[in-house]
Design a protein around this nucleic acid. Structure first.
Lengths: 353, 353
DNA sequence: TATCGGGTTGACAGCGTTGTCAGACTGAGA
DNA sequence: TCTCAGTCTGACAACGCTGTCAACCCGATA
């Protein structure tokens, strides 16, 4: 007895390669498997002395519970699936790690799945895949327009997504930042600076987020009594922002609301190439507030999203769904924040120039 | 019989909510569970007629195999764990999705884990966590200096990482881009442009990648017979690049090799603020080739890494390790590519200016 | 017709764990 | 000392699947 204590204390070298089972621990400690199970799961009704002896055996044998066996009998896997678009866009990515941390804290593991294109077919395949892995709920992030999820494919599984779903599913919550409000704030900001002709460089309109931002811009223009300027559709990339900006005419437009920061960077670059100064001749507002936005040659005015908060909220809602706790609402929209930097300026300055 | 065929054909409405078991399918098809198992697993020795009947029952009942039960009996989970740093840095992130796709293709699911700080303790915790989840191998990405992995913690589990491991473990392969060579190429490029006083803005030197790039720069300087300029350590962020650049003296230095693109962006911004033109007065080379690097106000000369190739290779090696196939080498270094754009210029132009 | 061999099928055990339930043990009170 | 309630402990079945092995069927051959 004392010997083994010493051995543990000194972190005896190699652990047994083949992992011990509950019954091995039981034999080693001289108790039943059930008692070991109780100790391992921190259940009550075990004499402290026995508990200690069992724990010692657990450590000595390097016992680790077998997740599959446990899942089989408890019918719980404590796994949640994440479906996201396979692109290193800042948005979907930024939330990813917060998602994992939140899931970890809640006692769940994250299984990752990607879809190239958020088509109904690919989505269904991803869901099947996760279902087969035994996940207890799914988070659908970033991608896609309104989701068309065959309810049968989901089999009643809890889902949290950033996009709304066509058929109102029973176990579904939408958690997203309030894209539309963010866009309206951007327009308002430009309006307050005296801009009246404001264009929009949109994201790919197959994305719900892109539609939301465009609609927010439209709404903002209408609210201000302005005629919406031209809209050009990009694909979120700096490259596409660069191209889009080339098609914008300085005579028609004094400001652009761009659907994300990377396109905004491309746009600013394009304006510069055309001899249009930002913000002197043209104001630009981005969206996302990527970390490097503040350190561009022209620090970017942009709309900040709180991806961390979104991720945490998503996990919270999903876990509530999984554990059958009551949920308050089925759609949650998180606030955005306008960050004013140097890429926007008063139109007065322009006119006097 | 015909009835059910029709029902299937018309995609009869709601599927049963509780998922059917193998025995249910067996009963429905009038065969043994073993036969259903054979059909589901595509094993031979089942009469085509029976096979079809079983498949029909599978579809009718909406049967999905129970992963836990399967894992329990086969002792295989087909899950691999990913440990990565919880930051939306471009590098670790860019490979993530390729990793998932490669794993999917190889028939494995990815379980995600993050560590805040790649300390020995956090790493051990993450490994324990993954082990408890039953992963068959682990990929450690991005983070950290030389890994100190207690072999006991790993319990002989296959590991692929981007950083080398202190104790040579038996089941371990390193897959990384050849950071050092990339850095040397950058220095060489600056040298060829006539630069002789070249500084370095390094990443956090707790990162293996940062050390590699700094050492590559040092080596490149030595190879060219140059005295290494000052080194300033950043934290990968644009902000830190901005700060670092402020401490660099134009009188001492005509070029900077920056350890990643985002710091390079911050540095360029800082130089501009100080009235130092890039590339006129100062050449800057980045590292990574982030998508927006080409669309900066000063398009960035940088060293491109192929994250996709790295991810695919990592999965390939890990799967080989898991499936006990022979591996060729225990460390693999992928090539980089120098992308020359506008942030570097000949030093001649500088002198004449 | 009897025998043989291949393809096909099913009975049964077992993977490692937890839930159920009955039994054993304990100390307090009569 | 005996009873009783409460605490502790273990035997056993079950979770859903696959591996093993024996049994069966069939046509071909002797």
């Amino acid at each position: 007895m004392n010997d083994s204590v010493v051995e543990i204390g000194s972190r005896a070298g190699a652990l047994p390669p083949a992992t011990a089972r509950l019954s091995d621990v039981a034999a080693h400690a001289g108790v039943s498997t059930k008692t070991v199970s109780r100790v391992v799961n921190n259940e009550p009704n075990v004499r402290p002395q026995v508990r200690e002896r069992v724990m010692l055996s657990v450590v000595t044998l390097g016992y680790r519970p077998n997740a599959a066996a446990r899942a089989l009998v408890t019918q719980r896997t404590h796994q949640i699936g994440l479906i996201t678009t396979a692109s290193s866009l800042y948005g979907p990515t930024a939330g990813l790690f917060s998602l994992e941390q939140a899931a970890w804290k809640a006692g769940y593991a994250l299984t990752l799945t990607t879809v190239r294109e958020p088509s109904e077919g690919e989505l269904a395949e991803a869901i099947r895949y996760l279902l087969a892995r035994g996940v207890e709920g799914v988070i659908i992030s970033g991608a896609t327009g309104v989701l068309h999820l065959a309810p049968s494919a989901l089999a009643g599984m809890p889902v949290v997504s950033t996009s709304p779903v066509s058929d109102a599913a029973p176990n579904h919550v939408v958690v997203d930042t309030d894209q539309s409000m963010g866009a309206r704030a951007a327009v308002r900001h430009l309006y307050d600076l005296g801009h009246r002709r404001i264009a929009h460089i949109a994201g790919p309109l197959s994305w719900h987020a892109a539609v939301q931002r465009r609609d927010g811009w439209l709404r903002g223009m209408k609210d201000a009594g302005l005629e919406p300027g031209p809209v050009v559709e990009g694909d979120w990339s700096a490259k596409s922002g660069h191209e889009a900006a080339f098609s914008l005419d300085r005579a028609e437009v004094t400001a652009v609301f761009v659907a994300n920061d990377h396109m905004a960077m491309g746009a600013i670059r394009a304006f510069t190439e055309k001899g249009i100064q930002v913000p002197g001749d043209m104001s630009v507002v981005g969206f996302d507030d990527v970390p490097e936005a503040a350190y561009q040659m022209v620090p970017l005015t942009t709309v900040r999203q709180d991806f961390v908060a979104g991720a945490e909220r998503s996990v919270r809602e999903l876990v509530q769904l999984i554990e059958n706790q009551p949920i308050e609402t089925t759609s949650i929209y998180l606030p955005t924040e306008l960050i004013v930097r140097d890429s926007t300026a008063s139109v007065i300055a322009l006119d006097t120039a």
